[in-house]
């Protein structure tokens, strides 16, 4: 087994053990907390469905961040790209209300990809042409994206029948169906999951076998070599941010077209940012991303039950667990050395 998988799994258990220890200090029984988490996430088909529902946008935002990482770029802007992608989905779903599903969904998803991608490409362009660091620009573009989204949600596509900050409901042809009951129970888990998994398979193929993935990775991992081979790094950067942003835009499909059937303000729930953790924990690999997204999805669902079934800890423990896992992975060099000392 490759060393890094090993280290990741160890990090996982260290993160979990530390969090459970914390729960113990707070007066909970760690075994109980653990069981609540597991039961909450996998206890019934509906619970599994919710775990999958939470994992679905994470798969895509994780994929988005991973794609940029392959090209040596750190896309902190997935949340903003996703937000705009979601607004685009809602907008087309309202404007072209009566389209049949066969036309509606491809159209909407393409549009979300283009809008999210365009937003990402903007950061890519600023990096390629003006040398602005993408971490900075994507963070700042997030704020602009939120502002734009507010404008469209509240002023242009506002739902007249609700007090909440949300758009009107999209047409029936735009609504992505729920997964069959035997998988997702009565949860809102929907077919976007299948789309996400397909895209992850395609991602693996592109990165491993095609010239597109090859040049993206070459430009990212060995930019000086690429430049000397005549590769246009700037173009690769813009392309990478376009695709990364597009994938983030698609991450909006599940919450917008599969769950609420409208774009609510703040519908991303920070999924774009958690995508960073997913991509890092999954080490950019297709299987790793699936694993990390499912783990985080399950944790989110499992943790909801903590509020009900424990006395001293709340669902925030899940955030603590996620943070500790990421920290453990991030410090894996140190851990690995420790490991070597222990075992040698």
């Amino acid at each position: 087994m490759p060393k890094h998988i090993y280290v990741t799994i160890v990090s996982l258990f260290i993160g979990l053990a530390l969090s459970l220890t914390l729960a113990t200090i707070l007066g909970e029984n760690p075994g109980h907390v653990f069981l609540v988490l597991v039961r909450g996430a996998f206890g019934s088909a509906t619970d599994v469905g919710y775990s999958l529902f939470y994992a679905t946008p994470l798969l895509l935002s994780g994929l988005s961040v991973a794609w940029a990482l392959q090209a040596g770029l750190f896309n902190i802007g997935a949340d903003g790209q996703m937000t705009l992608g979601g607004v685009a989905l809602a907008a087309i779903g309202i404007l072209a209300h009566d389209l049949p599903m066969l036309v509606a969904l491809p159209l909407a998803l393409t549009l979300a990809f283009l809008v999210g991608g365009g937003w990402g490409a903007l950061a890519g362009w600023m990096k390629a042409r003006r040398g602005c660091h993408e971490v900075l620009t994507t963070i700042l573009l997030n704020f602009i994206a939120y502002g734009l989204a507010s404008f469209f949600i509240l002023r242009v596509f506002k739902n007249p029948e609700s007090q909440g900050p949300e758009t009107a409901v999209v047409g029936g042809g735009f609504q992505i169906g729920a997964l069959p009951q035997w998988i997702g129970g009565t949860s809102p888990a929907n077919w976007t999951l299948a789309l996400a998994l397909c895209l992850i398979v395609i991602y693996g193929f592109i990165m491993g076998r095609t010239s597109l993935g090859y040049f993206q990775r070459l430009a990212g991992e060995a930019p000086q070599v690429a430049a000397r081979a005549g590769v246009n790094i700037g173009r690769q950067t813009i392309l990478a941010m376009f695709i990364s942003g597009g994938l983030a835009g698609l991450a909006a499909a599940s919450p917008v077209l599969g769950f609420a059937f409208k774009a609510r303000e703040g519908f991303t729930s920070g999924v774009g940012f958690i995508g960073i953790a997913v991509a890092l924990l999954g080490r950019k690999s297709p299987l790793g991303i699936v694993f990390a997204a499912l783990l985080f999805g399950a944790l989110t669902k499992g943790a909801l039950e903590l509020d009900m079934d424990t006395r001293f800890v709340s669902r925030d423990l899940a955030t603590v667990i996620q943070a500790l896992i990421v920290l453990a992975v991030a410090s894996q060099v140190g851990l690995h050395n420790l490991w070597r000392k222990v075992t040698s």
Partner: peptide, 28 residues
């Protein structure tokens, strides 16, 4: 830094800049 793609195999390193000869429909 300038000649080698350290993460990659020797095979891959030998085609840097010469990719087009080894592609069919953009697949290696």
């Amino acid at each position: 830094a300038q000649a080698l793609w350290l993460e990659e195999s020797c095979y891959t390193n030998m085609i840097i800049g010469l990719e087009s000869a080894f592609l069919k429909h953009n697949i290696f």
